[in-house]
């Protein structure tokens, strides 16, 4: 994305404080503090049921947080609806149902630019297709006819339509073949950060994800139990235990 580095350097700073959220009054995640600085890649890892998906849903407005603040460059997003948060410079790449299956690749991108003016949307479709020549070749193909890797590429491209300063990815490699998954992380996700977009992702392939991340947050039982530089967490000897889901030793 042709964004000037001066502009991006100051944008995309996410600060989450004291966030609690859940369903029907029962909190699934409690008192979450997170920070993603401009142009950084931050990864949230943790066992199944740790509340990672709930956290993502609260961040992008699919569920309403009970308490806490979600500040993006000082703008509080907590309590806004998903379509409003989308207008506040947050791009989102969902986990499995990531593209509109009966819309063409081009139409999928247009939906990503729904909040833009018609002309700007058209212009951005061309720009994004230039950025992803592979998608440009299949511009008229239906979303449902793409491979898993192509769909994920389309979902990332669609999230870029509004030139967000933060992109949230929910388990981007879920359901992808290992080789495709590694490419997605090492090429596409890092390319986002290189363009100055902050990235917050939840990921199961923890080792691969941490190796491309600046910071990492380990979640267990609805809380962030460990936060550090990704490299530091990767180097910890008890890391295997964390990713196998045995986190008891970490809580204190």
């Amino acid at each position: 994305m042709p964004t000037s580095s001066a502009e991006s350097a100051s944008k995309g700073h996410l600060l989450v404080t004291g966030l609690s959220a859940g369903y029907g009054g029962t909190p699934i995640i409690e008192d979450i503090d997170l920070e993603v600085r401009s142009g950084e890649v931050a990864t949230i890892v943790g066992p199944n049921g740790a509340g990672k998906s709930t956290l993502v849903k609260a961040l992008i407005g699919v569920i309403r947080p009970f308490t806490g603040r979600i500040e993006l460059d000082g703008d509080n997003l907590a309590g806004l609806r998903a379509d409003q948060i989308c207008r506040r410079s947050v791009g989102y790449v969902p986990q499995v149902r990531d593209t509109f299956p009966r819309l063409s690749v081009k139409e999928n991108l247009e939906m990503g630019g729904f909040t833009l003016s018609r002309n700007l949307c058209r212009q951005r479709v061309d720009e994004v297709l230039e950025l992803y020549p592979k998608l440009a070749q299949m511009a008229d193909r239906q979303g449902g006819h793409l491979s898993g890797g192509e769909r994920k590429m389309l979902a990332v491209a669609r999230a870029l339509m509004t030139r967000p300063s933060l992109v949230v990815l929910d388990e981007p490699t879920a359901g992808l073949a290992p080789k495709v998954a590694d490419e997605l992380l090492s090429e596409q996700v890092t390319a986002l950060a290189k363009r100055g977009v902050s990235v917050l992702m939840v990921e199961q392939r923890a080792r691969e994800a941490l190796s491309i991340s600046d910071h990492a947050f380990v979640m267990a039982s609805g809380r962030v139990v460990l936060r550090d530089r990704a490299a530091t967490i990767l180097a910890r000897p008890d890391i295997g235990e964390v990713f196998l889901g045995r986190t008891a030793g970490l809580v204190n």
Partner: peptide
């Protein structure tokens, strides 16, 4: 048309449409 495409998008996946900023 935009609204027509948004109708198809909503028909495909309403929650994805909302996260794209489409007022479903």
């Amino acid at each position: 048309t935009r609204i027509g495409k948004a109708m198809r998008a909503t028909s495909d996946d309403a929650s994805l449409a909302r996260t794209c900023g489409i007022p479903t």
